[in-house]
């Protein structure tokens, strides 16, 4: 059986909120290392990969592998019933028909309990190759969100060009063109504002802004976002969570003939 207790319901609320517009039905794969999710969007352009390590829960118990097939719209409805600061416990039997969610207020004696019916989801797992990326950029997640939203007003696509000069996000559309360039920057007082660029070779790739703006819904999960790029492979956008847990998005590039 599964029993996983989260100190704050907020974490799961934010994770589900960040991915629910990209993927609808998905398996939450539970085993003794934690709860994982991997799903492609309908158009097979983006891939979501979430890992909530067992250390992110206390306690965490999962005796055998259980796949919880959950509709994210249903999960969102139930998670709305939890206050952000509620303690959240997920429970399921070994061959479950439902997943049980318990919300407890730390300040009062309220205890709410919900069951969500599970679905059989036949989802193929993709192997994500270990990649030594040519460029890795860490930057404030709010800054990345603003850049994507700003450029989307002008164009459907953004080119991300990383050289030793910095990283340039550029677009052009019917009304004109625009670009934002960032250079490495260290703020000792506020390290969450740092921009760090780690480059082994120059990279230039083009991506759909619609998806990037969608990924940025995860900005509330982490002050910093990490972008990993290599020529002609999907972009990795990573939001690191505590205890080595993470929410990752992969986006296939647009490539010319």
């Amino acid at each position: 059986m599964l029993e996983a207790r989260l100190e704050q319901a907020n974490l799961l609320k934010k994770v589900v909120d960040a991915i629910k517009d990209l993927v609808q039905d998905c398996n939450f794969d539970c085993n003794d290392s934690g709860i994982a999710l991997q799903a492609m969007d309908n158009s097979h352009v983006a891939l979501v990969s979430m890992m909530l390590k067992s250390e992110s829960f206390s306690p965490f118990r999962c005796d055998r592998n259980i796949a919880l097939g959950i509709n994210l719209t249903s999960l969102t409805k139930v998670l709305r019933c939890a206050a952000n600061e509620d303690i959240l416990t997920l429970k399921a039997e070994d061959a479950p028909d439902v997943v049980n969610l318990v919300f407890e207020s730390a300040e009062s004696d309220r205890l709410s309990e919900y069951d969500i019916k599970l679905m059989d989801i036949d989802q193929e797992h993709l192997g994500i190759p270990e990649t030594e990326y040519a460029a890795t950029i860490s930057m404030p997640s709010a800054e990345f969100q603003k850049i994507c939203r700003d450029l989307m007003a002008l164009s459907e696509s953004v080119s991300i060009e990383c050289t030793k000069e910095g990283v340039k996000f550029a677009c052009s559309g019917d009304i004109g063109s625009g670009s934002v360039t960032l250079r490495s920057h260290t703020n000792v007082e506020k390290p969450q504002l740092n921009v760090e660029i780690d480059l082994s070779e120059p990279v230039a790739l083009t991506f759909s802004l619609k998806y990037l703006v969608n990924f940025c819904k995860a900005s509330g999960l982490s002050e910093q976002v990490r972008l990993c790029l290599s020529n002609e492979v999907p972009l990795l956008v990573e939001y690191a969570l505590s205890n080595n847990s993470y929410l990752r998005f992969y986006l296939a590039p647009k490539i010319g003939d």
Binding site: V45, L47, L126, P129, V233, P234, Y250, A252
Partner: peptide, 14 residues
């Protein structure tokens, strides 16, 4: 004209 690629062109089923 750049063409949107699919994730499955890069990552294959396990």
């Amino acid at each position: 004209q750049k063409k949107q690629q699919s994730i499955s062109n890069f990552f294959t089923p396990r």
